[in-house]
């Protein structure tokens, strides 16, 4: 299983802008490189990242081959109510990795 590091403040005040940082372990193979046998290594990148906050999408991104391995994605959202942030990364192989984080809003 791929590893992810997620940094969400555990507590926030209602209405605060909170910064969320995610680091996902992924080779992000561009599809332009050749292996030791001279054949192209098939492309395998995370093509979509999304974050939902209590079911509502607050951030999503499409990724392309120029993005480095282990992509680091940082964004902000407004802390509205306590709940769960669900992060999902989908790659070219169709595999989706899902991670969750809780936030308490006071």
């Amino acid at each position: 299983m791929a590893r992810a590091l997620i940094n969400v403040p555990s507590k926030a005040k209602r209405g605060d802008v909170v910064e969320i940082k995610t680091l996902m372990s992924h080779p992000m193979e561009t599809g332009f490189r050749t292996g030791s046998d001279g054949a192209l290594v098939p492309r395998n990148i995370i093509s979509r990242f999304a974050c939902t906050y209590n079911g509502e999408v607050v951030f999503s991104a499409e990724l392309f081959p120029a993005i480095s391995a282990n992509p680091f994605i940082s964004f902000t959202t407004v802390a509205t109510e306590s709940g769960t942030l669900v992060f999902s990364w989908t790659d070219d192989k169709g595999q989706t990795q899902v991670q969750t984080a809780a936030i308490t809003v006071e």
Binding site: R3, L5, I6, N7, K21, L23, S25, N70, F72
Partner: peptide, 14 residues
């Protein structure tokens, strides 16, 4: 310095 943005920590978790 930040363990949550240091990509080396992904290897540490493994």
């Amino acid at each position: 310095k930040d363990d949550l943005s240091n990509p080396g920590m992904l290897g540490v978790l493994d």
